[in-house]
Simulated scan of single mutants.
Amino acid sequence: MKSTSIISWVRRQKKVHSKVNTSSTMRVGIVHTAGSPCGCAEAVAGGLAALGHATLIVDSEEILLRSEELAATCDLVIDHTDTFLGWGVLRPFVRGELERWGARVVGSSTQACFLADDKIAAKGSLSAAGVPTPPGAAITEVTAELPLWLQPPLILKPACEHMSRGVTLAKTREEARVAIGVLLESYCQPVLVETFIPGRELAVSVLESPEGLEVLPVLEWLSDDNEYRILTAAFKLQENGAAREDAHRIILSSVQRHELESLSRKAFRALGLRDYARFDVRLSPEGRFYFLEANTTPSLETGEALAFSARWAGLDYVHLVKRLLEVAQRRYCADSRTNKTVIANY
């Protein structure tokens, strides 16, 4: 006798996979945070229009009201939520609502987003997979003592925020102690304290393809801070276009390129990501790569890292958007074929 849970699962799968659109024209939902400085929604909408697709743009703050509509009326949904209810830590909740209603989301699953957005949990998964990360510790109380092996300069980050919100450089242990108190009070979440890694700041974008994971040409950020080269929130909020001068393509040796591509693929799989992602990586003066963060929703603006790297790989912006749609469409079609076989058995 079939269990109720299995029957419910079958019904959900029928609902989701019966809507996979294999035609050339689609309706694509775009979820963004209205008022956010990110211009992803406008850029993606332009790319979709150039491809002949219709769009439905929804504010992430309305997700509880609009998820069912997005799932029912859109062939795919691109979720680029910045914050939900004012918090970056809650942005995976938006994706969870979309998936709960059966929306076909471009990008990583809710579970993977929660993992990747939690810098402490992600750090553990990456380290366990053999992907190097800076030495660090998680602090949850103002009175907690920093380990003696954690020596300044140090980088402090709220565990589950992004866009460099709250990122602080501490040059002494006393500065670190004060900053920990401020961050704990301001963000109400653990603080990740890591050894500052000097060197070059890289953005490594990864796209799925029929041939496997493709690591795009690597971008290096050029900061005015020549000593520390930290990408602050102010740096990321600058108005930049496709001709920006603070980013360029880094040329690595064949050995370094092979190592970075291998580590990036390993990191992508260790976090259970899908479709596309970007990793923030430091290249130390000794030539060692350290993975700092994973971003499941890297900026899709035309003047940001993913678009630059895609261009260097031969994909203009419109074809980058097309590629993202195709990889998600291919995944859902494959899931549909698999689940039809499973459903037929019940």
Rank of each mutant, 00 (worst) to 15 (best):
S8Q: 15
K15N: 09
V16G: 04
V16H: 00
T25H: 10
R27P: 00
C38A: 14
C40S: 15
A41D: 12
E42Q: 13
V44D: 05
A45G: 08
G52A: 04
A54H: 07
D59I: 07
D59Y: 04
E61D: 14
E68L: 13
C74E: 10
L76C: 03
T83K: 10
V89T: 01
V89E: 12
R91C: 00
F93I: 12
R95C: 07
A103K: 05
A103E: 02
T110L: 03
Q111M: 08
A112V: 11
C113R: 12
F114K: 03
D117F: 05
I120M: 03
A121H: 09
G124Q: 15
A128C: 03
A129K: 07
A137S: 06
L150H: 11
P152E: 07
L154C: 01
L154W: 06
L154I: 07
M163Y: 07
L169F: 03
A170R: 02
K171C: 07
A176D: 06
V178E: 14
Y187V: 10
Y187I: 06
C188G: 01
F196Q: 08
G199N: 02
R200C: 00
L207S: 07
L207D: 08
S209C: 08
P210L: 04
P210E: 06
P210T: 01
G212L: 07
P217H: 11
W221C: 00
D225F: 01
F235S: 09
K236G: 10
Q238N: 11
N240T: 15
R244L: 13
A247S: 15
S253F: 00
S253Q: 01
V255S: 14
Q256P: 04
A270E: 06
L273P: 03
L273R: 04
R274T: 04
D275H: 15
R278P: 09
F279Y: 14
D280N: 08
D280W: 03
V281H: 07
S284H: 01
R288S: 09
Y290L: 10
T297H: 09
T297L: 13
L300P: 05
G303N: 13
E304V: 06
L306F: 06
A307G: 12
F308A: 04
A310T: 10
L315M: 15
L320W: 13
L320A: 11
V321Y: 08
V327Q: 12
A328G: 03
Y332A: 01
S336R: 15
S336K: 14
T341W: 09
N345Y: 00
